[in-house]
Design a protein around this nucleic acid. Sequence first.
DNA 1: ATATTAGCTTGCATTTTGCAAGCGACCTTG
DNA 2: CAAGGTCGCTTGCAAAATGCAAGCTAATAT
Lengths: 175, 175
Amino acid sequence: MPGKPKRRRRSGCPVSISLELLGDRWSLLIVRDLMVRGLRTFSEFQGAGEGIATNILADRLQKLEAAGIISAEPEPGDHRRVNYRLTEKGIDLAPVLLELLIWGARHEHTGAPCDVILNLAKNREHVLAEVRRRWLDRDPTPLLPWFVEGAKPTAEGITASMRPGKRQHQPQGGR
Amino acid sequence: MPGKPKRRRRSGCPVSISLELLGDRWSLLIVRDLMVRGLRTFSEFQGAGEGIATNILADRLQKLEAAGIISAEPEPGDHRRVNYRLTEKGIDLAPVLLELLIWGARHEHTGAPCDVILNLAKNREHVLAEVRRRWLDRDPTPLLPWFVEGAKPTAEGITASMRPGKRQHQPQGGR
DNA sequence: ATATTAGCTTGCATTTTGCAAGCGACCTTG
DNA sequence: CAAGGTCGCTTGCAAAATGCAAGCTAATAT
C-alpha cells in the first residue's frame, strides 16, 4: 500500500522506481546501519560510519520514513532520543544490500576478507534468514564486522552467525 | 583488478564502495538497459527510457567504462556508432538489479504485473542464468517487457524465457 | 555536394550536497 | 532549581551535480 505519489515518475519500471527512492549515495547506507550494525539513533548514524552531514542525514531519515522504509519513535525513557527501525518494507531490502555487498567485495578493493564474502555468497539464504530473525527479535548485535580498510583477513561476525547454530552474538563493538 | 583509486573512499565497506560507483539515479538504469533490453548505443539509451539528458548520459557512460562495468567499441560497419556492452563485472550486477526489481514491484505501484514478479522471485537462479546466457551469446532480444504504467497484466518476455527450455546452467561457478 | 545521423560538448539555470554553526527541547548534575 | 551537556535537528552559504537547450564534429547516406 504505497503512499501518494509525490512527483511524477520517470517510468513504471520497478528498477527505476526503486532507484528514485534509494538511488543516492546515502540512503542504503543508513539501511545497512540499521540492518546489520544495530544502530538506531541520529547521532549513531552520524558518528559511526562514512561521515554523513547532519542535514543530509536528517533529510534522508525523513524521506526513508515517508517512503515507509523506516519508522521513528522516541525512546521511552529519554525523549531526546529517537529510535529508528526498519519496517518490513525496509528489511526486505536485505537481498539488495547483500548483493551489493557481494558485488563490491568481488570486484573492488574493499576491507572485506575473501573468505567472508565467499561464505556470504554461498549462504545467501541463511544470511538473509539471520538478518530477518535479528530484525524480528530486535536483536541489536552487529551481524557484520566493520570492514575497515586493512582489516584482518579472518572472518569474525559473519561466519559465526552463518554457521547453522542457534544464535550467537558477536561483540564487534568499537568504531 | 580494480583500477587506481580516483578519490579517497568513505570506508572499506563493500556496500559503501558499490554505492560510490552506482549510487545515483541513472547508472543502474543504463546497466539495466544493456542487460535486459538489448540496447547498445547512445541514442538508444537516450530515446528509449526515462529521458536522461545527453550530458548526463555521456558522463555516466564514461564513468561506467572507467569503472570497468561496460566497454565501448565502434560499430564495425558504421564508425559513427559506438556499441556499449557489459563487462563480466557489469553482468555480475544482475543479482543486484533483480533484487531491486523484485523489491520495487513488491512494495511500490509499478507497471509490473504481480504474476510476473512472483515468477521472477521464484526462479531467481534461472532468470540469472538466462541473463548470463544472453550476455555470453550476445543475444539482444529484450528479456523483460517494458513495464509501462498500465501495462497488460500478462507476462510476455519473461515467462517465455523462464520456462525450462533446453539448457539451464546453474551459474554457481566460482571465479 | 548536401543532408542526415550519432555521439557527444557547452552554457547556463536549478537543484542537491557538503560544511560549519546554531538552536530548542530534554536530561543530568550540583 | 540553575548550569551545563546531549540529542536531533535547522540554517546559511559555498561547491558540486543535474537538467535543458543548443551547437559542433566526424561519419554515413543521398
